[in-house]
Amino acid sequence: MFEARLTQGALLKRLLDSVKELVTDANFDCSETGISLQAMDNSHVALVSLSLRAEGFNPYRCDRGFSLGVNLNSLNKIMKCAGNEDVITLKADDSSADSLCLLFENSSNERVSEYELKLMDIDQEHLSIPETDYDATVMMPSAEFQRICRDLMVVSESVTIDVSKDEIKFTAEGELGTGNVKLKPTSTIDKPEESITIELGQTVSLQFSLKYLSNFTRGTPLSDQVMLCLSDNMPLLVEYKMDIGYIRYYLAPKVGD
């Protein structure tokens, strides 16, 4: 038996929103410790990895590990039937999980709706991503990162990210001209969500597709801060941390000139 009850149902809506543009079908892997998902986009350039700890649910019950194969478009349609303040419970029979039950309860518990989502067999490739010591780790406001991606898309479909001790610089060059945004580290003790920090082993300069990056910024509503981890000639890691876990996006760099 699998059961996971999330008092903040809106979080599940936001999570789904941050994954569904990148992948259409995905396995939610459920175990005693929580729910996780790893899926690559069709072009095998980007990957999303989601982890939700069991402690974030109340209650959480999973007797044995199993996978829920979900079409995210279908799940999204059903999730639209949940109110933003609803408590959401996910239920499945782990021995014959051919459907996922979704229960939406409003705050006064007067309205309860129940939906069954048909599950599917998804044969997904999993990549093993090792713990990595990155050359540069940047924390910045997630809304700022979203704005930079949106703004620079006006100029080009790729962005070069340069990180030094003193700044992170985003540069775009296109047919109409060029643009860049530089951010310096700041620490605002009274407003930590607005701070920018750079931890640097060595300077890095990497080029990425803005289409994917701006797709990743769908995670913005999940966290005030975003973490960018870069190493030369390695995929970029973009992480949004939440109280109950994290969503991580990986993006392979573009080939340098």
Binding site: L127, S128, S209, P235, A252, K254
Partner: peptide, 14 residues
Amino acid sequence: INGQYFLCNFYAQK
């Protein structure tokens, strides 16, 4: 895609 690495260039399949 021209000019773009793939994730499998960096990470092994499980």
